[in-house]
Computed example of a mutant assay.
Amino acid sequence: MDTRETEIRELLQKIPLLKNEIRKLIVGQEEVLDEIIVALLAGGHCLLEGVPGLAKTLMVKTLAQALQLSFRRIQFTPDLMPTDIVGTEILEEDHSTGKRFFKFNKGPVFANIILADEINRTPPKTQSALLEAMQEFEVTYGGQTYPLDRPFFILATQNPIEQAGTYPLPEAQLDRFLLYIKIGYPSREEELQILSGTTGSKKAVINPVVTAEEIISLQQLVREVNISDDLIAYAGELVRATRPATTAIAYVKEWVRWGAGPRAGQSLILTAKARALSRGRYAVLMEDLHAMAYPVLRHRVLMNFRAEAEQVTADEVTRTLIREIGRVN
């Protein structure tokens, strides 16, 4: 076995170690945890949605503890300003010369992992402060560009049941999130385990098991995972079929207002590669595309007013497309 194969094998062993550390505090939510790790490996960002009390914040904090990365939490509120996220210039004085100068004081966005808590509680002006950071991995202030530390991973949370005092994320910003992950209630057994494990005096210790350099190496390795031309073509057809103007599928024409753009296809292929790698495979299977289609398309397929009234969701559209398009020809 050559050195490269040994390095790859050692890197892949880090993924189950990371999951095991997170499971010390997080009970259940296996699919959610898998999708968060997929997004991390793919180098994208996540939007987490769930009712209060489902450990969204705890999951992100535990992930940060298991990684040897800097972590900052930003609590989004209606009075939060863009400078509270990006940073601002402050006037300082050189005591040796007496000259005054402006110095850029970096905001909390200058960290490896950012928890944007309740992102929909702040106005669009402040929400947009994250746009450049999410897409370009840099921040511009006063005409000067400041690169962000890598890896850079934003996990934003939002509460789906409270609408008063919230500002829905614009489609342009939604599209910047690689995955839109929905968190549901735990099962009966998982809830009993949560109740017994969190009400005593014993506290789990989370050990950092993956470094920043290892995360970057894994992200580069994801790009090298093989995917066949047939599966690439299938991913393209799946995304194109979400567009009511060009699709032949009646279900889409009936319920969808706008379909997904090319970025959805890129995200689908990249996350399928990350999912394959997280399972120790070096080639994408159809099951990877099917599994990642839901969190990839969930926020990129816009339903029409009738669908919203009758509670037809983007997940149902994706399920129908997978069934209609079928297997690769």
Score class of each variant (00 low, 15 high):
residue 66 A to Y: 04
residue 166 T to C: 07
residue 194 I to P: 04
residue 20 N to H: 15
residue 137 F to L: 15
residue 114 I to Y: 06
residue 119 I to W: 01
residue 129 A to C: 07
residue 261 G to K: 15
residue 157 T to V: 00
residue 158 Q to F: 11
residue 55 A to C: 02
residue 233 A to Q: 13
residue 284 V to S: 04
residue 272 A to I: 08
residue 135 Q to T: 06
residue 136 E to S: 04
residue 29 Q to K: 12
residue 305 F to K: 10
residue 193 Q to F: 03
residue 58 L to I: 05
residue 68 Q to P: 08
residue 127 Q to H: 02
residue 288 D to K: 02
residue 63 L to K: 05
residue 226 N to T: 15
residue 235 A to T: 02
residue 50 G to E: 03
residue 7 E to H: 10
residue 194 I to G: 03
residue 76 F to K: 07
residue 7 E to V: 02
residue 121 R to V: 00
residue 2 D to C: 09
residue 307 A to P: 09
residue 101 F to C: 00
residue 293 A to V: 08
residue 213 E to Y: 03
residue 195 L to D: 06
residue 276 A to E: 14
residue 97 T to R: 09
residue 29 Q to N: 02
residue 80 L to G: 08
residue 40 L to E: 06
residue 259 G to E: 13
residue 31 E to K: 12
residue 275 R to P: 07
residue 310 E to N: 08
residue 149 D to N: 13
residue 71 F to M: 14
residue 138 E to L: 12
residue 69 L to Q: 10
residue 89 E to L: 05
residue 49 E to D: 13
residue 214 E to F: 00
residue 125 K to D: 04
residue 183 I to N: 03
residue 138 E to V: 04
residue 3 T to F: 12
residue 42 A to D: 08
residue 22 I to A: 09
residue 236 G to R: 12
residue 146 Y to L: 13
residue 125 K to C: 01
residue 168 P to H: 00
residue 247 T to C: 03
residue 14 K to L: 10
residue 242 T to G: 09
residue 60 V to K: 08
residue 83 T to N: 13
residue 279 R to H: 13
residue 262 P to W: 11
residue 178 L to E: 09
residue 154 I to T: 03
residue 13 Q to I: 05
residue 206 I to H: 00
residue 149 D to Y: 01
residue 108 P to H: 14
residue 41 L to Q: 12
residue 195 L to V: 02
residue 140 T to L: 08
residue 129 A to T: 03
residue 42 A to F: 07
residue 309 A to E: 07
residue 105 N to F: 11
residue 272 A to G: 14
residue 141 Y to E: 15
residue 41 L to F: 07
residue 15 I to P: 08
residue 165 G to Y: 07
residue 293 A to D: 10
residue 257 R to S: 12
residue 168 P to K: 07
residue 158 Q to C: 09
residue 241 A to H: 11
residue 29 Q to L: 07
residue 112 N to R: 01
residue 248 A to W: 09
residue 316 E to C: 05
residue 39 A to I: 07
residue 258 W to R: 04
residue 46 C to P: 05
residue 234 Y to P: 05
residue 56 K to C: 09
residue 242 T to S: 14
residue 176 R to Q: 02
residue 260 A to R: 04
residue 111 A to P: 06
residue 315 D to S: 05
residue 322 I to K: 06
residue 147 P to Y: 12
residue 45 H to S: 05
residue 285 L to E: 14
residue 328 V to C: 01
residue 72 R to F: 11
residue 161 I to S: 12
residue 43 G to Q: 10
residue 59 M to L: 15
residue 169 L to W: 01
residue 183 I to P: 05
residue 65 Q to G: 11
residue 253 K to E: 05
residue 63 L to P: 08
residue 50 G to R: 07
residue 214 E to N: 02
residue 114 I to M: 00
residue 207 N to D: 13
